[in-house]
Amino acid sequence: MRRLRTLIAAGAMTIAGLTSTALAAGDVPLPPAQTWAHGGVNSFLSFFKGYDYASVQRGFQVYKEVCSACHSMHLLSYRNLHDIGFTEAEVKAIAAAQEINDGPNDQGEMFTRPGLPSDRFKNPFPNKQAAAAANGGKAPPDLSLIVKARAHHEDYIHALLTGYTDAPAGFELSPGANYNKYFPGHAIAMAQPLYDSGVTYTDGTAATIDQQAKDVTNFLAWAAEPKLEERRRVGLMVMLFLVFFAGIMYAAKRRLWSEVH
C-alpha cells in the first residue's frame, strides 16, 4: 500500500515536471512571482482563495479604457460583468454605451444598435485582417483566455505589462518594435500600454503602472477562468466526501478481510 502510494506520487510529480519544464525559453528572464488574491488560475494549493473583485473591476476599467482599443475579448458577454459585482443596471448601461453591429433587417441592411447584456464584448476591429492591417501586420491577440494561454499565467502578463525598458546597447530593434524584458525575443509590437495615472480609478486607488498591471491581470484571470471559485468550492465538498467515503471503505475492507488473514 505504502509502496503503491509512493509510486503514484512519484509518477504524478514526474508528469508535472515533464509538462512544465517543456516550456522554459531561451534568454528571457522568468517573470517574477507576484501575490494574487486568488492564488493564480493554475495554483494547486489555493483551496479557499477567490478573486479580489475590487481589483477585477478596476482591471475591467483598464481593459475598457486602454486595452480594448486594440484587443478583443470575444468570449465574454456584458452580462458576465454581473459576476464581478456590477449591478444589472450598471451592466445594462455598460452594454448600451457600445454601438453593436446587427442585422440584416427586413430591408436586408446591416444596422447598429445600442448593446445589450446578452451581446459579446465589442470587437475593436471588424475582422482579423483589419486588426492585422491596423497593427503593423499582426493582429493583437484576443484576451479572453490570455492568462491561461501563456506559461506562468498571471505573473507573465503582469511582467510583460511592467517590463518595458530601453533596449540595451547593441540590441537591434526593427522599426515599430518595442523592447520588453519579458517578451520572448524582446521585440514586441505592442507599445507600452500603461502609464502612471493613465486611468483614473473611481475608488481612489492610486493608478501606478504596477497597480494597473495587477488590476488588469486580475480581470484577465477572472475572464480566463470565471468558474474558478465554484470549481474550488465544489472541489472541497467532493474531497471531503471522498476522504470520508474512503475511510469507511477502508474500515469495511479491513473488517471483511480480517476473517481471511
Binding site: A16, T19, L23, V41, N42, R232
Partner: peptide, 27 residues
Amino acid sequence: FGLTVFLIFFASFVFFAPNLLGHPDNY
C-alpha cells in the same frame, strides 16, 4: 476502496489543477 483513493487523486486534478497536464498553447 481502491476506487475512492483513486477518485481523490483524480478529483484533485479536476478541481484544483485542471490545466496542469495540459499545454497553455491549446487555449
